[in-house]
């Protein structure tokens, strides 16, 4: 069949390789050297045609001639192209010596393009890249549910507190805190041995003292103000913001940092009294 007849059929009737899109008419035939659908680069309508194909990174030069047009099995003659670009060029020159210049030019262009994309592909493959994975929604939801339950079971604050107290008891903190642990423990032991009454009496004495303080709560409020005012000055970030009732609790007897703070605050108060500068005092209290 004549090339012109074939081209007429392809162009004006139907070609299954043709792809008409907005940018133009393209060809999907793997033997097409340019990918464009026109008379000169159609692999079907040209009895003399050549192209380059890529088989897993190896390039082959494909050529077909009119002499073999009646033998579909032997239609294409295949020559392997070396990896080296220049050597590949030489081989193309050798095999396509007397071919139309336009076709040779197109094939050389294709070779350039293909070597470039092969280099790019290799480079990209060597590069470490992030892999995008799917997140199974059902599993994440289940995980979140279990997490919430585990959090409740953990009782985090409680376990941390108990751990810290355990450390204090074991003496990890050394001399920093001066809680009279030994006395405390002995008291506990004595209570266990039912020697409690004596201690209770002692404690009762203490209790009466505390109650006496409680009665004078009206005065105590003022005192607290003083203390608070002292605290705000130098102890602000220590424990004021922990929670409110903390300031009402009696100061620790033994801890040195605390006692220092107490001394400082009293100092400030005395200064205020000497100056009798009420305005400034109120301002600070505010």
């Amino acid at each position: 069949m004549s090339d012109d007849v074939i081209w007429h059929c392809i162009r004006h009737n139907h070609c299954s390789f043709m792809a008409k899109i907005e940018t133009g008419i393209f060809c999907r035939n793997p033997y097409n050297a340019t990918g464009i659908c026109n008379r000169s680069s159609c692999p079907l309508a040209n009895s003399r045609y050549a192209t380059i194909r890529d088989h897993d990174g190896v390039f082959y030069l494909y050529m077909k001639t009119a002499e073999r047009a009646h033998l579909p099995k032997k239609l294409w003659e295949r020559v392997k192209l070396p990896r080296n670009y220049e050597k590949a060029m030489e081989i193309i020159n050798k095999h396509l010596e007397f071919w139309p210049k336009l076709l040779v030019h197109k094939i050389k262009q294709r070779l350039t393009k293909m070597t470039q994309y092969r280099i790019r592909m290799r480079r990209l493959q060597l590069k470490v890249r992030e892999k995008i994975m799917t997140v199974p929604r059902k599993k994440t939801q289940r995980d979140l549910r279990r997490l919430e339950k585990a959090e409740k079971a953990a009782q985090l604050d409680k376990s941390i507190e108990s751990e810290l107290k355990e450390r204090l008891r074991k003496g990890v903190y050394g001399e920093i805190y001066n809680f009279p642990f030994k006395q405390f423990d002995t008291i506990l032991d004595m209570e266990k041995d039912e020697l409690a009454p004596e201690i209770e009496e002692e404690e009762e004495g203490e209790i009466e003292y505390v109650e006496g303080d409680d009665i004078e709560m009206g005065d105590m409020d003022d005192m607290e103000d003083f203390e608070g005012f002292g605290d705000e000055d130098d102890d602000g970030d220590e424990d004021d913001d922990l929670d409110e009732p903390a300031t009402k609790k009696p100061k620790l007897p033994g801890s040195d940092s605390r006692s220092k703070i107490g001394r400082k605050s009293t100092k400030v108060i005395t200064e205020v009294e000497e100056d009798e500068d009420r305005g400034s005092r109120q301002r600070t209290r505010m």
């Binding site: 604050d157 941390i160 507190e161 810290l164 107290k165 204090l168 809680f179 405390f184 008291i187 209770e200 404690e203 009762e204 203490e206 209790i207 505390v210 424990d239 922990l242 929670d243 903390a246």
Partner: peptide, 12 residues
């Protein structure tokens, strides 16, 4: 009548 018991508390 009240008993008092000294306890060491840890606040976070």
């Amino acid at each position: 009548e009240t008993k008092t018991e000294k306890q060491i508390n840890c606040r976070l």
